[in-house]
Design a protein around this nucleic acid. Structure first.
Length: 278
DNA sequence: TTGGTACACTCCACGGGTAG
DNA sequence: CTACCCGTGGAGTGTACCAA
């Protein structure tokens, strides 16, 4: 381990389940020949990007050869193992993250546990963003904000590349328009029908392409969006009553809001406001 | 690619009730 | 008074399938 230079940071995040995106950890490592990690399971997403050398990445019964300027994704719950090449051991940077939007961003990158390899034409930019995340982890002040900023930039470039590749780009425009409509109208009593009307598609067809694109139904997306907004409101103003928040996110009936909140979060709004009570 | 239908399923508004 | 639970029935939704 004497020649091994390694840096790692684990951030203490208390409200990790309520944020859109959170950096869990980041680091850089120059591995020795045949240096390995795993088999191991993560509770968050982990992107490794190889800046030099090569190695192998194993998931389920699949083996992937990873070269310089390529990366690989580890999804939460996946059992993975990876090993540096014997002759040209890899040097990589990694960032671990999670959050409510993480799954959506990964999907938009076209990645999953069957397709975990990151191939990019913008490898210089990608490694630059990763290096910046790592550098910011040493900052004393506002480091989590800086790291998150670079993580967003990193994901944006990978998403952009994946979406440009998509042949059926027209679908993305419908989804984008629908999400924009939801963001503008979540506080009103909108329905899937009204969203489909706004986009200009048949409700059934709209639901179908929405689910194909985001792996969730329009209704699930709308509910999730409203509950996240409710959590933000509770955090911003601890004096707000549950009824005030429920009306603010489009639920005229506070009881229904509490029921939906508990279903999504696993605990009631009052337990969210005051965890000690629960 | 888009729209329509059918049907099973889920959601939600409502009323009634309990607990603190 | 506030917060929550439960049962019920109508409305809304997802999905498979077919047609244009």
């Amino acid at each position: 381990m004497d020649n091994l230079l390694m840096e790692e940071l684990f951030l203490e995040i208390t409200n990790k389940y309520d944020s859109n995106l959170i950096v869990y950890q980041c680091g850089w490592e120059k591995c020795k020949p045949k240096h390995s990690y795993g088999p191991a399971v993560r509770d968050h997403y982990l992107i490794h990007f190889v800046t030099k050398g090569a190695g192998k990445f194993y998931i389920d019964n699949l083996t992937f050869d990873i070269k310089e300027n390529q990366g690989f994704l580890i999804c939460p719950g996946d059992i993975t193992y990876y090993e540096a090449d014997e002759k040209e051991p890899w040097e990589y940077i990694w960032v671990g993250f999670n959050g409510l939007k993480a799954n959506e961003y990964i999907r938009r990158m076209g990645l999953d546990n069957h397709n975990p390899i990151i191939k990019t034409k913008n490898s210089i930019i990608v490694s630059d963003y990763l290096n910046n995340i790592f550098k910011c982890s040493k900052f004393q002040h506002a480091r989590e904000v800086r790291m998150l900023g670079y993580l967003y930039l990193l994901l944006s470039i990978l998403i952009e590349e994946a979406e440009i590749k998509e042949v059926s780009n027209y679908k993305y425009e419908y989804i984008e328009k629908a999400i924009e409509y939801i963001e503008m109208n979540y506080s009103r009593s909108i329905s899937v029908q009204s969203i489909a009307d706004h986009v200009g598609l048949n409700r059934c067809y709209f639901s179908s392409i929405f689910k194909n694109s985001l792996n969730m139904s329009p209704e699930s997306f709308l509910i999730g969006y409203r509950i996240n907004k409710a959590c933000e409101l509770f955090k911003q103003n601890k004096n707000l009553r549950i009824g005030d928040v429920s009306r603010s996110v489009g639920y005229s009936d506070q009881l229904v809001f509490s029921k939906v909140f508990k279903k999504v979060k696993g605990y009631s709004p009052s337990e969210y406001i005051n965890p000690l009570k629960g």
